[in-house]
Amino acid sequence: MNTFALLEYSAWGLSILLGLWMLVDMFRTDRSYSEDLLTSSREGEIEDASAVDPPQKRGSR
């Protein structure tokens, strides 16, 4: 195996890792927060006080 082949395998490996990271985080987030909260964004919330930083509690994750 030459150096470039090693680079190619590393690129595949890193791509799979990044993809898995996003998928795992997405599923964990979806399970930890209610759908109503996740889809609660509204346009035009420039000075809307009800748009807040949600509490960073993530249940029993």
Binding site: S32, D36, K57
Partner: peptide, 11 residues
Amino acid sequence: ETSPANGERIS
């Protein structure tokens, strides 16, 4: 599960 309280929203 964390639910919205008092009309809180995520933007």
